[in-house]
Amino acid sequence: MPVPEPLRVLLVDDHAMMRAGFRLILEANDDIAVVGEAATGAEGVAATRELRPDVVCMDVQMPDMDGLEATRRIVADPDIAAAVLIVTTFDRDDYLFDALAAGAAGFLLKNAGPEELVRAVRVAAAGDALLSPEVTRRVIARFAGGGGRDVASPARPRAAASPPEPARWSPGDPLTERETEVLQLMADAFSNAEIAQRLYIGEATVKTHVSNVLAKLGARDRVQAVVLAYRHGLAG
């Protein structure tokens, strides 16, 4: 049986030591290969187009072009299939919501453990969104009008960011028992592969259930689906 190609990862961060640390963590795994590095958002966009990685690990605050704008450009380019994983030092809601609005596949803080970074890369490469329970709670709080902890820095003043528009769901189109189980596991930040293991079903079956859940909820993506799950008491 042929050995699958390793996941191709591009590191975009203006600190060389941070890139070196990420490379060391990721390349300790046989299924991951770091194919390039970039020090600015603009370099990251160019390197993504040239190297065709599966996942881009993107910092936020960088010279020339920040990671949020770089993410928007990567996601908007129809010739690029890379998933963007935001990895930042800054625990700020404006970054979180801007990243989600830009189309990032995940949001991870740099104080996360090495195993969390590896898992996040694998989840993003599989086409799943990565939202930790903490991040999900912050999204829910904003949708519910609870506000956030947006902090504008003197170096980067900005208005408070808004989360993606919540979807609307009519309870007249109920989820099946299995679809509800899948949605609850999505809300707990499990990937399709992890859901398949927990429910003892195939990953292709999970993908079908996820598609059905999104369609029934009228949700654009997993983020909106999880928001609706909390709002309607289907998770939490």
Rank of each mutant, 00 (worst) to 15 (best):
L130P: 13
E115C: 09
F90T: 06
C57V: 15
A81R: 14
N29P: 04
L108G: 12
L100A: 03
D31R: 08
A39T: 13
D64T: 11
S132I: 02
D59Y: 10
L108C: 06
A39N: 12
V84N: 11
L108H: 03
A47I: 04
V56M: 08
C57M: 12
R137V: 13
L51F: 12
A99I: 01
A126N: 10
A28Q: 12
D54K: 06
T71A: 11
D64Y: 01
A81D: 15
L131V: 14
E43D: 13
A120R: 00
A47Y: 02
F107Q: 01
F90I: 07
I86R: 04
V45I: 02
R119Y: 15
D54W: 05
R119V: 09
L68E: 09
L85G: 00
R92E: 15
G36R: 13
T89H: 14
D128K: 02
D30A: 09
L131Y: 03
A28K: 14
V139T: 06
P78G: 13
A126T: 04
T89F: 13
A112P: 08
L85V: 01
A124V: 03
T136D: 11
R49Y: 05
G41Q: 00
I140S: 03
T136H: 09
A46C: 03
D54H: 13
R72L: 06
V87R: 11
A99G: 04
A124F: 03
I32Y: 03
P114S: 12
G44F: 05
A33G: 03
